[in-house]
Design a protein around this nucleic acid. Sequence first.
DNA 1: CAAAATCAGTACCGTACGGTACGGTTCTTG
DNA 2: CAAGAACCGTACCGTACGGTACTGATTTTG
Lengths: 213, 213
Amino acid sequence: MSDQDTNLTPEAFTDRQKAVLDCALQLLVEGGEKALTTAAIARAAGCSKESLYKWFGDRDGLLTAIVARQASKVRAPEALNGPFSRETLTRELYQFAENLLQVISSDVSLALNRLAIGQASRGDATLGQLLLKRGRGRIGAQTTLLLKEAMAQGYLKQSDAGSAYDVLYGLVLKDLHVRLLLGDQLKKAEQDYAAAGKQAVDDFMKLYAASTE
Amino acid sequence: MSDQDTNLTPEAFTDRQKAVLDCALQLLVEGGEKALTTAAIARAAGCSKESLYKWFGDRDGLLTAIVARQASKVRAPEALNGPFSRETLTRELYQFAENLLQVISSDVSLALNRLAIGQASRGDATLGQLLLKRGRGRIGAQTTLLLKEAMAQGYLKQSDAGSAYDVLYGLVLKDLHVRLLLGDQLKKAEQDYAAAGKQAVDDFMKLYAASTE
DNA sequence: CAAAATCAGTACCGTACGGTACGGTTCTTG
DNA sequence: CAAGAACCGTACCGTACGGTACTGATTTTG
């Protein structure tokens, strides 16, 4: 009852198909799922509906392809190999927090998440799983490794790195993600992602920094 | 360009109309927005489509009425008046955290949030604003008052109570709300809301407890 | 009790969308 | 250059939904 051979991984899309998916994504960002009709995609991408169905099967396959393509663009941050200084750790975390805030609040991310949530409301969590695995999962895994390494080097308290990452995530985003998904407008001060991220990381370090002695 | 006289506040619904809205909500919870057609509501509620349009104007008005009705059921927790002990504070916060987790993960809450997010994806944030104001806002305001009072009584560091509440909120929910909206299944351990809430509040207290001396 | 309002049930209309079929054009390939 | 595949553009079909109109029954009201 799970994803068996839905072959989401291959993504053997031709350049033409990728261009079509990018067009479709733009439509999605601009007008929401409602605007993402097969006719509109065909018109915007300059291809025929018949080709869409030939390439992606049906509308659901098309939506999945859009998400898969975009998720494939997610670049996990470089893993630090070897020892690093405490300053490097905090700098990396600052970078992570600011980047996370930027990504989460981007039009593309919001549109994709809304699309997946809409599908989930119809009882199908395929897109949601895809987003969680390829999007949050990939970034999270890398940062979790960073935290684990920081624990090994004595900068952070020994504890479950996954839980620590969850705490960091919560401190950075708070209820911002859902508010944005709901269409709420951020106040000016809330849009200073660098400052907000720094504050969150500082809080995180208060909780997880190894006792200095 | 905002909500002017959309008269969301009155909610002068007759008992009959409330019953219809409850029926509609049940449909929404069971089958998502897709299942929430006017015909389906009329059939489930045993009323005519004409009555639906007479009472609620159009489909959007019906959706708004559903959300408004449910939001009106939100009971803000009692405000503590007068001084209270530190134990009372932590007990209240534990209660708040567990309750928040339960509410956020409930089928009804998820369905309403998904509905509002779907509307937001079409560029209309009416339902989102309604949810934020009547749902999160009401609970949040009360707990923020509690935090402010705790600061006044010296249990918590003096700081902006609103920001402190945001931190608490983030620590309690982490990325759980969005994961649930995306249709992700919680692991067994994650469903122990009492334990998760306690952990979050303990973390919160580490950050905000007034230095004991 | 009679006039008036309300409402359930149903039929109906226009539109929009997912999906398919087809003709004509361009591009590939031998 | 010729045969064939790929594909664009469009037309088409069936269905489903939002919204309206009508009718007969029930309730309300004076």
